[in-house]
Design a protein around this nucleic acid. Structure first.
Lengths: 191, 191
DNA sequence: TGTTTTCGCTACCTTAGGTTTCGATACCTG
DNA sequence: CAGGTATCGAAACCTAAGGTAGCGAAAACA
């Protein structure tokens, strides 16, 4: 029945190349910045042909989005109270964006998306939505409030990264937590 | 004496072209997005030769920065209390970034700066610093706090613009004010 | 051994940022 | 009006980079 669907397709199997390409992407972006991290160079670092990259990802933007998805993984929704949940999410986002290459790649693909509606849709759907939905469920907040939360947190982290080239320092991440969490603490609706 | 320095230099005077180019830049960016707003097209819209543009601005990035400086103008530091000053600054920034073309141009040049240290320096020095210094003076806050303030406000506004393609709605700007102003209200130092 | 699919390589197309050159033009001075 | 000087417009040009196409080789399986 369904076993035929899960059967290995014929032909030469794909090489386990995604992991290598993701690593090459982050290291190249970290070393040269987003714009200078060309697909050709990423492929060379990964030891893979450029055409192989374009066979798997239709554009540089989608490669970066996949790479970021791989780098971020799921949100670790830790904490019992809403305040703990939000604070741990903020610190997790700050830590991830601070990882070498991740912040540059994020800011770069974000900037490309400004001029590219297709890429913007992909960025919003594949990268933002999963986290948005998880936060909506965990916090019980309406979509608009969660989107605002993401705008503030991610926007601030990326703005710092873009303006200074360095991730936000811990003291400012603390300030971000202390600014954002109380704002969402006073529940608008009745208990 | 000094009168010779202020004398008009010989040769054909520069045409009053900056205003036209700035207007053409914003309208082209609004219509096509940042990346598709090529210098060639901007020059064509302005009725000016491409070489004329490059004679005045060494790169597309610096053209955009000058254009944004022209579009923003000085911060209107209105309000007696610190709270009023901050709230009016936030609303002013939101309104400016919401103007047609401005947000796209800002987000676009910001993204270019991620990969370009030279452009990042220009963006930070020419665009951010004047406002940072004015806010430092008006609010009496240390540099780090003002930079954090700018990260949060501008970052959130640009993130919304980049993710949705639309400026932040008034209700969310209100929320931004209500979140940020109280955080800075409690003065950290002794009274 | 044959089939199917992927891989690596290379050559190529297109767009766009940026440079260069050159003749034409505007302004001032004498 | 003639000469000097700097800018303008137009066009040709260079280079980097995203993305495509074609082809032979290699890896699996039947």
């Amino acid at each position: 029945m369904a076993s035929t669907a899960s059967a290995r397709p014929p032909g030469r199997p794909r090489a386990g190349v995604n992991t290598v390409v993701f690593a090459a992407t982050l290291s190249t972006v970290r070393e040269l910045g987003y714009a200078r991290a060309t697909v050709e160079r990423i492929a060379a670092v990964a030891g893979v042909a450029k055409s192989t990259v374009y066979r798997r990802w239709p554009s540089k933007g989608e490669l970066i989005v996949d790479c970021l998805l791989d780098a971020f993984g799921p949100v670790p929704l830790e904490g019992d109270s809403r305040a703990e949940l939000m604070s741990s999410s903020i610190r997790w986002a700050a830590a991830k964006i601070g990882e070498p290459g991740v912040g540059d790649a994020f800011a770069g693909v974000f900037s490309d998306a400004v001029s590219d509606p297709v890429l913007r849709e992909i960025l919003s759907t594949r990268l933002q939505d999963p986290y948005r939905i998880a936060l909506q469920d965990a916090l019980g907040e309406p979509e608009a409030r969660v989107l605002f939360f993401i705008d503030v947190v991610v926007g601030a982290l990326l703005h710092r990264m873009g303006m200074t080239g360095e991730p936000m320092v811990d003291a400012d991440v603390d300030a971000l937590v202390e600014m954002v969490v109380p704002h969402f603490a006073d529940d608008p609706g009745p208990g």
